[in-house]
Amino acid sequence: MDRSPATDYAADAQAAMIAAPTSKSGAWLHRFANPGRFQRLVQPLIPWIGWAALIVCSVGLVWGFAFAPADWQQGIASRIMYVHVPAAWVAMNGYAALAICSLLSIVWRHPLADIAAKEMGPVGAGFTGLCLITGSLWGKPEWGTYWVWDARLTSVLILFFLYLGHMALIRAFDNPQHGYRAAAILGLVGAINLPIIVFSVYWWNSLHQGNSITLTGPSKIYVTMLYPLLISTLGFYLAFIAMSLARISSGIMENRARALLLARAERSGS
């Protein structure tokens, strides 16, 4: 029976919280499981990523809102794209990151992955909500309706509910480990929705248009409209990364402060 300290999760997490030990097993994954190492690596980066996110988002959104040319047919409503499309991309890739954390949690009992999944949930849900709201605001003047139950819109709404369900589940148990286990299963099962979102506009007839930018073939967005889109996309990704890292870091610090206070109370109590 393999009883290496790395697989003994409860002890590992406890030790990681209090003593922030260096890697014990040879597994390379666990080199990054150490919250102390994570804090040393990431905390100095957070303000830089945060400021970069603020600057790039501002440039992208101001460019998109005020300077990007209007579409020949949609007019200025096309400017909603500079919020909607980056939000959709971040929402989907955020969920992909959450699903990877779930896998790391289920298989390798990676203590940092649980905290990461817990903290990325609300950020991803925010971007998914933004995607749905802006899509709706674009749909009213352009399609003639706020909402239709086509495959793309419905699958993104399901993504939103998956985020909300994950957020609720991971916080639902008195013992956080139970929440981490349950939420990791939900996170992995929900990943099946991602290819459905991406290909929904090709597999089925949908009211939603196909993808304007693909990895193969030229972009269907004119170059002067493409630049602000790419910039605000970069800004949104930076914002997601900065917020996720800061929240993970906060979670680790909160856990550690709690563990220290608990240890102190136990010492003075005995």
């Binding site: 007019g75 909603i80 919020v83 925010g126 802006t134 605001l137 003047p141 917020m243």
Partner: peptide, 23 residues
């Protein structure tokens, strides 16, 4: 369509702003 555009950018500022401030 200006109200819809303003609404979209307002939603972006509100959601990203609230998330980053609480963070």
């Amino acid at each position: 369509t200006l109200p819809y555009v303003v609404g979209s950018y307002g939603a972006a500022l509100a959601i990203i702003g609230i998330l980053s401030l609480t963070t």
